[in-house]
């Protein structure tokens, strides 16, 4: 239960330090932050770019059931609330894998 691995601990502490830095950066930056609209667009694109970069191998390079289920999920995401999208995606992959 209390087991930990020193490398895991190092990773968690590193993640904590960089996350805290992003959260308190506003204390230093407030009032003197003026991005060009183009830099603003690139900044706004960070969350989707990172999210998609993380899942692309699972969605596009695993097998056709995963790729098809990702497409179904993306379609669901255009019209359903968050939790429903996740349920649809998971059900789609279970169903499509059963066909293989």
């Amino acid at each position: 239960m209390m087991a930990f691995d020193s490398l895991n601990l190092l990773a968690i502490l590193g993640m904590a330090v960089v996350t805290y830095a992003t959260r308190v950066a506003g204390l230093a930056l407030a009032g003197r932050f003026d991005l060009s609209p183009r830099a603003q667009a690139a900044f706004d694109a960070i969350p989707p770019a990172v999210l998609i970069a993380v899942i692309a191998p699972s969605a596009l390079a695993t097998g056709w059931p995963e790729t098809a289920a990702a497409a179904v999920t993306a379609l669901a995401a255009t019209r359903l609330p968050f939790l429903a999208v996740v349920v649809v995606g998971v059900m789609a992959v279970v169903g499509l894998r059963a066909l293989t």
Binding site: D44, P47, P48, L51, I52, V54, I55, S58, A59, E66, A69, A70, T73, A74, A77, T78, F82, V85, V86, V88, G89, V90, M91, V93, V94, R97
Partner: peptide, 19 residues
């Protein structure tokens, strides 16, 4: 239960929120 795919589905849903 397809739970391994839940990540992918969650991230696609989150991406929609940043659209």
């Amino acid at each position: 239960f397809g739970a391994d795919f839940a990540f992918t589905a969650i991230f696609i849903a989150l991406t929609a929120a940043f659209w």
